[in-house]
């Protein structure tokens, strides 16, 4: 998808630029954009590395495991189908904690492992189970304790208070995720009721 969007952006710019007589600006903007990208990434790469280092400590010290235990009661409600599936519940919780703590490197492999475990419980069926839908929806929402990339970029671009977005991010992400969870839960039950009839 991004293939086409990217190509469209460039080709459309050339056409519109030609019509507006701004082709020289368009070329200059392409070069400026390319150079800016390096400065932009260099501006926040330090914060990313700092955070990644701290999270490594959290991982090795067992702090991540403590968090995993903390969210288990919530997961018993969200994934009510998995009450008897200890291994799956463990994998799902580990992925969610990795996401919350912003462990980008760990979250995806853990999530794929959890998804495959859910797939096994579902008998490798062609139709996704309720738990699989729920797990995918939760992963496509974002609940993050510290939105470190955004804070890093804001700091590098001279924001007066780079971390002031934290509380708004918490509120919005929790509300959006809750919406997704409730809607998924509802759609899942509706499906079983329809099938029973």
């Amino acid at each position: 998808m991004i293939n086409y969007i990217w190509a469209f952006m460039i080709l459309f710019s050339v056409v519109v630029g030609a019509l507006n007589g701004r082709l020289e600006d368009v070329v200059q903007a392409a070069f400026d954009g390319a150079n800016n990208s390096i400065q932009t990434v260099l501006g926040f790469i330090g914060v990313t590395a700092l955070w990644s280092g701290l999270m490594k400590i959290a991982e090795q010290s067992g702090l991540v495991r403590v968090f995993t235990r903390l969210i288990r009661p919530i997961n018993r409600i969200i994934f009510s189908d998995l009450k008897k599936e200890r291994k799956a519940m463990e994998a799902v919780s580990a992925n969610m904690v990795a996401n919350i703590l912003g462990l980008a490197n760990a979250a995806t492999p853990l999530g794929i492992k959890a998804m495959q475990e859910l797939d096994r419980i579902n008998g490798n069926s062609k139709t996704a189970s309720n738990a699989m839908c729920m797990f995918a929806v939760i992963n496509s929402a974002s609940i993050q304790l510290i939105p470190s990339t955004m804070i890093g970029i804001r700091a590098s671009m001279g924001s007066a208070a780079p971390s002031e977005i934290i509380l708004p991010v918490w509120i919005v992400s929790i509300c959006a995720a809750l919406c997704g969870v409730i809607l998924t839960k509802f759609s899942g039950s509706a499906y079983y009721i329809r099938r029973a009839k």
Binding site: M115, D119, C133, A136
Partner: peptide
């Protein structure tokens, strides 16, 4: 990425809800 790792091709209500 997530559904790509499974055998499920019918993702039901997932995309809509997400």
């Amino acid at each position: 990425v997530y559904f790509g790792a499974t055998k499920a091709s019918n993702t039901r209500h997932t995309l809509r809800c997400a």
